[in-house]
């Protein structure tokens, strides 16, 4: 286990280095000039040169690169050209909202995936309908689901809110920044409930695609494992099909589904950025969307690195979970 974590930390360093290098290169070949974006089209040549010097853009590219990497080591992501604040504190402000949405998205995805897989594996009348849902879900883009959900559940039925993280104006802003958790920590159950209501629609919109992918993988391994020798043994003991599925087959089917979950988390981050736009969710999606047109390199790099690290962390957790599920795997 420690070996795995050490290995992954080394991998993470390599990924951060590679990502930074790619972003640096992209910035250099991009026609967008951050100085122009900051000062506007009418700035004087002298002002531009001065700003360029202030940002360190007049130094050789390698020196800029090393400077930036050195900053990263001290937790310094640089200063956003757009907000003029350190990228680190910007991220600190936007990340919890995204993290909360992604967490609930993943949670919904896993719950839905298991329900879909079980529902279509056991023999019961609804299995066929669920298979249609699986197929439809797989072929519908997330933004379409999101818009459809807003129209039905917000506009027509009025059951659920569709914008922002909370309707409350006096919501606590600490200690974690995750509203559902902060509500509990501050003894404000109303905050938790309200935040959860706000999370349902965007969370489900984020979860739909991954839920279908994970569910299909889980379903096919469940079906395969239900034919296995040990399932036959379990039936020969006189167990019911439900107990064969829950007690024996499920744990043996988790491996591929866990791998798929790891992959889907990466895709889910991309999905979150779109969904945040639709639901006016104040997360890094909006932050990124506003940073890209003005070539706010430090902000874009900060978000990218964060996602890269998050991806490695999630996949390390997946590997550990796989080893827990299957005692034959040694990590």
């Amino acid at each position: 286990m420690l070996r795995l974590i050490a290995k992954r930390l080394a991998g993470m360093a390599a990924i951060i280095f590679a990502l930074t290098a790619v972003i640096f290169l992209l910035q250099k070949i991009s026609p967008l000039d951050p100085v122009h974006a900051m000062l506007g089209g009418n700035a004087s040549k002298a002002a531009i040169a001065q700003q360029r010097h202030a940002l360190g853009l007049d130094r050789p590219i390698l020196s800029q690169f090393w400077h930036y990497l050195g900053g990263l080591l001290h937790g310094d992501f640089g200063t956003s050209y757009r907000t003029r604040r350190p990228v680190g504190s910007d991220l600190g402000f936007f990340v919890p909202a995204t993290l909360e949405l992604a967490f609930y998205g993943l949670l919904f995805a896993i719950v839905l995936a298991v329900l879909l897989a079980f529902g279509t594996t056991l023999n019961w009348p609804g299995a066929r309908l669920l298979r249609v849902v699986l197929l439809a879900g797989a072929s519908t883009p997330a933004f379409l689901l999101a818009i459809g959900a807003i129209i039905i559940f917000y506009q027509h039925l009025g059951w659920l809110p569709a914008t922002g993280r909370t309707d409350l104006t006096n919501a606590p802003d600490g200690p974690t920044g995750l509203l559902t958790l902060d509500g509990l920590l501050n003894g404000r159950l109303d905050v938790t409930v309200d935040a959860f209501k706000h999370l349902i629609l965007p969370g489900l919109a984020v979860a739909a695609g991954p839920a279908v992918s994970i569910g299909r993988v889980l379903r096919s391994s469940l079906i395969g494992e239900m034919q296995s020798g040990y399932a036959k043994t379990a039936r020969a003991k006189g167990l019911t099909e439900g107990r064969v599925l829950r007690g024996h087959v499920l744990r043996n089917s988790l491996g591929p589904a866990l791998s798929m979950t790891g992959l889907q988390v990466g895709l889910m981050f991309a999905g979150v950025l779109v969904i945040e736009e639709i639901f006016s969710w104040p997360g890094i999606g909006q932050y990124t969307a506003q940073s890209i047109p003005v070539a706010d390199f430090p902000a874009i790099a900060g978000v990218t690195l964060l996602l890269g690290v998050g991806y490695v962390v999630i996949n390390t957790i997946v590997d550990i979970l796989q080893a827990i599920a299957d005692p034959r795997i040694n990590i």
Partner: peptide, 16 residues
């Protein structure tokens, strides 16, 4: 009834 099958590796649950 009781049952014993051919391959004891696949007939036992590997994760239990």
């Amino acid at each position: 009834l009781g049952a014993v099958f051919q391959d004891p590796m696949t007939s036992l649950n590997p994760t239990m």
